[in-house]
Design a protein around this nucleic acid. Structure first.
Length: 287
DNA sequence: TGCCCCCTGCAG
DNA sequence: CTGCAGGGGGCA
C-alpha cells in the first residue's frame, strides 16, 4: 500500500523526531525482517546517531553515524510508529490507543532511543530493514534498479514519452508503475494518474499519443503532490509515525470506488484485473 | 515480459 | 473456506 506519498509522509514524521537522537539498542522480533550487511548485527545499532531521513522511491534511507545507514521498505503493510516517552505517560495524548498496543503482534523490529521508541510493524512480513555501510546504499540492488522520480528534474514529458515508446507492447499502467522506469507510483496513484490523464489503463504503449503522454506526466506529479498534501492514503495500514491516518482516501477519483459514480461524470466506476492488480477506472472519462 | 511467490487477515 | 489485497524478487 505505501507508495511515494505515504513513504514521504512517514519520512517527514521520522525526520522531526529522530534526527539528532542516538539509538540505544535494537530488538529483532522477527529475523526475516532484518538484514544486516556482512560484519554487522542488531548489536551494531547501539550508539548510532541519526543524521538524516531521506526517501528513494518507496524506500526510506536513515543515515546514521559511523557511516552506517538503515534502508527500509514498508512493502504493503509496513508501519513505522514512534512513541515518545512523555506520550506514554500522558493519558490525554491522541496517540494513546497506539501506545497501549505497542509493541503489537505485528511488531518485527524495535529501535530504542533516549526520548522514545520506534516500532517497525509489518503484518504480512514482506517489508525489510537493512543495516549497511552508507557507501553501499547506492550499490544496493533495490536502489540500483530504481528509475527517475516524477519530482526529479529529469522527469520531463519527453522522458515519459521515450519510455512509453520503449514499451510498445506493455499496457500504460504497467509502464507507469514499473519502478525501474518511474519510481514512486503503485496501484493507487497509477489508477489516479490515468484518470486525470483520461487514459484507459489497458492501452498499449504504441497506442498512446504524444499529447497524452504529456498530459500523463503532469497527472502523475499532480496525484503524488495531492497524496503528500493529505498525508497519504489510509485505506488499510498506512499511518504517520504519530499513529494518525492520512486523508487522501477522501479525494480518490477511481481507486477503491468500484460501483460508485464518477466524481466528474457520474458514470459508475469499474474495476478489472490488469497485470495481476485490481485496476479502477471511469468507463466514460477514460478512453 | 508476464506470472507465481512471499505472507496474513479479512470479506464474501 | 476461498479468494483477494499488492510491492517487488525471481524465474521461464
Amino acid at each position: 500500500m505505501p507508495e511515494l506519498p505515504e513513504v514521504e509522509t512517514v519520512r517527514k514524521g521520522l525526520e522531526k523526531v529522530l534526527v539528532g537522537q542516538t539509538i540505544r539498542s535494537g530488538d529483532i522480533l522477527y529475523k526475516k525482517s532484518f538484514f544486516p550487511a556482512k560484519g554487522l548485527t542488531a548489536k551494531s545499532l547501539a550508539g548510532l546517531k541519526v543524521k538524516s531521513v531521506a526517501r528513494q522511491g518507496k524506500a526510506l534511507v536513515i543515515s546514521l553515524s559511523k557511516d552506517l545507514s538503515l534502508l527500509i521498505h514498508l512493502k504493503m503493510t509496513g508501519q513505522l510508529i514512534y512513541i515518545d516517552k512523555k506520550a506514554r505517560l500522558n493519558l490525554g495524548h491522541p496517540s494513546n490507543d497506539f501506545v497501549a498496543r505497542m509493541p503489537s503482534s505485528h511488531t518485527r523490529v524495535i529501535f530504542h532511543f533516549a526520548k522514545g521508541t520506534l516500532y517497525f510493524n509489518d503484518q504480512r512480513k514482506f517489508g525489510w530493514v537493512k543495516l549497511l555501510p552508507s557507501p553501499l546504499v547506492a550499490e544496493d540492488k533495490f536502489i540500483q534498479k530504481l528509475g527517475i522520480e516524477p519530482f526529479d528534474k529529469r522527469f520531463t514529458p519527453d522522458y515519459l514519452w521515450s519510455i512509453i515508446q520503449r514499451r510498445p507492447k506493455s499496457n500504460i499502467k504497467a509502464i507507469i508503475s514499473d519502478q525501474s522506469l518511474v519510481a514512486g507510483l503503485g496501484n493507487i496513484y497509477s489508477d489516479e494518474a490515468l484518470f486525470f490523464a483520461s487514459i484507459f489503463p489497458t492501452r498499449l504503449g504504441k497506442n498512446v499519443k504524444r499529447a497524452e503522454a504529456i498530459k500523463l506526466a503532469s497527472a502523475m506529479k499532480k496525484v503524488l503532490e495531492l497524496g503528500i498534501k493529505y498525508n497519504g492514503t489510509s485505506l488499510t495500514h498506512h499511518r504517520t509515525p504519530e499513529g494518525s491516518t492520512g486523508d487522501m482516501q477522501k479525494f480518490l477519483m477511481v481507486y477503491d470506488r468500484k460501483g460508485s459514480p464518477c466524481k466528474k461524470c457520474k458514470t459508475i466506476i469499474k474495476k478489472i484485473r490488469l497485470n495481476g492488480r485490481g485496476t479502477n477506472y471511469c468507463p466514460k472519462c477514460q478512453t
